[in-house]
Write a protein that binds this DNA or RNA. Sequence first.
RNA 1: GCGGACGUGGCGGAAUGGUAGACGCCGGAGACUUAAAAUCUUCUGCCCUUCGAGGCGUGCGGGUUCGAGUCCCGCCGUCCGCACCA
Length: 851
Amino acid sequence: MASRFNALKADASWQKVWDESRTFAARDDSPKPRSYVLEMFPYPSGRIHMGHVRNYTMGDVLARYRRMIGHEVLHPMGWDAFGMPAENAAMEKGVHPGAWTRANIETMKAQLKRLGFALDWTRELATCEPDYYGHEQALFLDLFKAGLVYRKESAVNWDPVDMTVLANEQVIDGRGWRSGALVERRKLSQWFLKITDFADDLLNGLGALEHWPDKVKLMQENWIGRSQGLTFSFKLSDGDKVDVFTTRPDTMFGSAFVAVAADHPIARALADRNPDAAAFIELCKRGGTTAAELETQEKLGFDTGLTATHPLDPAWQLPVYIANFVLMEYGTGAVFGVPAHDQRDLDFARKYGLPVKRVVSEGEIEDPVFVGNEAYGGPGVLVNSHFLDGMDIEDAKRTVISRAEGEGWGTGSTVFRLRDWGVSRQRYWGTPIPIIHCDTCGVVPVPRDQLPVVLPEDVSFDVPGNPLDRHTAWNTVDCPSCGATARRETDTLDTFVNSSWYFIRFASQPEGKPFDRAVAEQWLPVGQYIGGVEHAILHLLYARFWTRALKHIGQLDVAEPFAGLFTQGMVTHETYSRTIETLGTDGVDVIHKPLWLGPDDIERRDGGVFEIATGEAVTIGRVEKMSKSKKNTVDPEPIVDQYGADAVRWFMLSDSPPERDLPWSESGIEGSWRFVQRLWRLFDGATEGGEGASKDAALDRKLHQTIAGIAVDIDALSFNKAVAKLYALVNEIERAAPSASRSAAIATLMRLVAPMAPHIAEEAWAAAGNDGLIADAPWPEVDPALLVEDEVTIALQVNGKLRDTVTMAKGTAKDVMEALALANPNVQRSIGDATPKKIIVVPDRLVNVVA
RNA sequence: GCGGACGUGGCGGAAUGGUAGACGCCGGAGACUUAAAAUCUUCUGCCCUUCGAGGCGUGCGGGUUCGAGUCCCGCCGUCCGCACCA
């Protein structure tokens, strides 16, 4: 008789079977159609969290479903194992980063296994092992040889807490993305990858990514930031010249000044002989870079005393300023100011009393004197602009550019916001950059036969900074070129380099080289990539670049690494807090602030919520992303212990659309657990023999509609809809009287739930006497004849309002429908004395009487 | 400031321009039980009700349409990304 489904026991036994039979190992030589399903690999921080569970469950459902429809599926897992937390742990706990990382991997791997993911563990990799990063070093040298790697002295973002350089992308509001410390500017010799060589291609390539979210494509587009315009020269009064870039060459006749960045060569030259200029430049550098500071920061300038000759009017001299709002990193580091049509220029002009001349008019206004403090940037017609007068903006741009090119003082040009990728990190726990610095030979690549350059194990973290710098036994080497004593590069690679090609290594991992081209090309691109939207720019852009770079050097012919991308929402939870009083920094003021409490710290009683430890009343806060700081995390492991893997997986897929946030709740997981038990009661009952040989046509139809429906939903990653359809099917099976149809439906249901709840599906499959694994079973076939209803419910409307519904045979003739509608008492009552003016009949849908 | 997404019951959310609220959660009532748990049945947008029905409902205001959650215009709100990018 019906027993309980023992999830703990079933989970373990089926996981063991899958493991031992290598059920999910992908075959490189398979003749089947291929599916590469990949979720962003985790950083081994210690334990898995609900975000991982949700991410990997989604990928798993897709992978298992694709197997069932006959694909050879590659669904691998590995570890993004280099990074700063390991070094932080080393400093705080005195444990070696490698030992810490490898222990975390063991823990997390065991946790992932308990969720029964259909992963090919034979391809597992960890980026911190020499057999991964050694190949990365080889690829780095290939790119170096191809001229895609260079070294330059540059101002870098220095994180004073983590004691490292950060990429621009890792600076958020002027603070380090990890430490939150205010970033300083420093000059260091750094390694760069020439991502800007591919700026155009990276931008254009977005157009072909049909299965990427528009949002992510747009974010990348904005990040790459292509601007078309004119780059041209001003002759300066000292005989020098200055190049500027503008997207508005049409406004040439509205210019009032030229401004250069504080670190522009002209500014630096002036500072050498003018202490006031030097002081101004210092002032500019001190300015904060946060959004709030920038918004309120005044536009400041320093008059260099130089003048610039307007290229279209030799008699016209413009003052040249050093200005705090001009960026050296963008364009040419110099601009010409058109105050009437650019807000920053207007602010600047008003402050220094410069002329403000209107050159674009949106209507009747043609007065050259521009009034007000709001620049006009909209459409219009050129005015006060000599030969440009009367043209629209685009015409005027073209005219000025062709004139500049004809006269030789400027060229039409494209400028990108994207900068080259600085990959040097002054850290230990990363891929050593395979370069040797020799006093005589300069920069010398490590010879291939000396790869991998392995990280030394014996390092100490008792002082800040990079331990590799202090490790002279490691960093002192003979120059491969001249044999003299030389020094190893002690910078390591940004961890984003590790994740820029791991998906290629998953597809093919030979021993002697990074990948086998033919094998990798069979699997790539990744068909469906799933991960958090936080990687929309950095990781995804770098991986796209790396793929292009490999293509450029002839190692891999793949246009894009990820054909399909899905960004899943976060797992959220209520927050709990009570207010505590604490003294402010002055030691006097009393500040009220929330003390966050965890879900296990509180209890609900007497209609309220209280802290268990103190009995104090607790405030329920907003539902937020699970985070340690808000203490609203739920550890997956005890949940799996209590409810089993299938219930947890089911909950992860239920209710919320996968791209939106999923609010974790106790009642939700209990509901999922109840459903698993409901399934078991059906499956268990089915083995007792399906009594009756009768057909149940309605149930047959429902079953086949469900098979077809959830296939569509899974393909679209609409797991919540697939789950709802399964609930509806189960409801109907439970209500149905015993019949052959019902028994068949239950047998089919096993396969329908197999991608989502694989353990109970295997258990039921085996109990029903089937051979082999349900994981290897084919997806049920759909009988197309059963997808169409033979009866339909028709809505009867009067003036668009629903008055009744009637059931009739599908395909009922229009005039019959109309007659039935007019004969309907509810319709008649609603029409009353009025005469129908018009009757709309939509076959198999509705009749609308307009009266 | 620029760009984007979203707004539907107490909650998560369904809905090719055609019966709004599928499915789940919470909640109510009942059955089974000595009792509880589990399970099952049933109700569950709001208002009004003479129990036949009716009215109102998808952030707000307009519009297109026989018909709008869905399309168009204008607001409001929430969230996300970028941000002195010339």
